[in-house]
């Protein structure tokens, strides 16, 4: 790791101030950033540790949505009675990110700010059509937030403060785990709302998390596995690596979507 100055602000206001510094980087749960720093793949001058800010941590209900503070840890989301009751798929997803120790440190905000193409949370945020609130006072719709792998709508120094998840009629997340990293080799979040169905896919595409429009249209007509007959994802633009070819990932997108529909129904 390169040397850096470390600061741990106690309030969001202090954090915003600290983020104005040259080469400042925010540290949320650190479960991705710290390994990255160890590999010397990042060299911040200042690391702004957000774990001391209580105002961005916690879960509450807001206008019918489940609002999760950006600093809320995966284990807290998984264990939340409100989340379990209203969006069990989100609880399930949070309870299967990484491993128990990662879930005790990793946060929603950290995962979304990083936007790893194989992370689980982006699938929930996009699949549920959540709204991302930031320290700049912006409310960014999920459809606008994700802009390709490791790229988001956040501006320099802008921090996520909370995410509002609308409550679906039905939803499920199916994760096909990459055996080494425990990230998603392919993960599919399916959510049915009164106004339609959203299908978000993570782990598969070189463009990062994406909505699978054909499946959404088919499931919008009939929310049943059979509706997906003949609906296939294209391998074009899918990730090919040690763990799966683009063809395999495209195939898994279909299988995981069907299984998610089954689990949600």
């Amino acid at each position: 790791m390169y040397a850096f100055d470390y600061t741990r602000p106690a309030s969001l206001a202090e954090a915003i101030e600290a983020m104005r510094g040259d080469e400042a980087k925010a540290l949320a749960g650190g479960q991705t950033l710290i390994p990255t720093l160890k590999q010397r793949l990042a060299s911040p001058a200042t690391l702004v540790d957000l774990t001391g800010i209580t105002e961005i941590r916690g879960i509450c209900l807001k206008d019918g949505a489940v609002s999760v503070g950006a600093g809320t840890r995966h284990a807290e989301v998984a264990a939340s009675a409100d989340v379990r009751r209203l969006i069990p798929a989100l609880s399930h997803l949070a309870g299967h990110i990484g491993d128990p120790q990662v879930r005790n440190r990793g946060t929603l905000g950290g995962s979304l700010a990083n936007n790893d193409p194989s992370a689980c949370y982006p699938a929930a945020v996009l699949g549920l059509g959540a709204t991302v609130h930031t320290s700049a006072g912006r409310a960014i719709a999920a459809d606008d937030y994700f802009q390709g792998m490791f790229t988001t709508a956040l501006d320099e120094g802008e921090l996520i403060t909370s995410v509002d998840f609308p409550v679906p009629e039905k939803a499920a997340y199916m994760k096909f785990v990459q055996p080494a990293s425990r990230f998603a080799l392919t993960g599919v979040f399916v959510a049915k709302f009164a106004g339609g169905v959203r299908v978000a896919v993570t782990g598969a595409s070189e463009g990062g998390v994406f909505r699978w429009a054909e499946a959404e249209a088919a499931l919008g007509r009939s929310f049943a596995v059979g509706a997906l007959d003949g609906v296939e994802a294209s391998p074009d633009g899918m990730i090919g690596d040690l763990h799966g070819t683009p063809e395999y990932r495209a195939h898994l997108v279909g299988v995981m979507t069907r299984r998610a529909v089954e689990a949600a129904a």
């Binding site: 650190g30 479960q31 710290i34 390994p35 690391l47 540790d49 120790q101 990662v102 005790n104 440190r105």
Partner: peptide, 8 residues
Amino acid sequence: SVKACTVF
């Protein structure tokens, strides 16, 4: 429980 290698 946390990983002490991934906490400052």
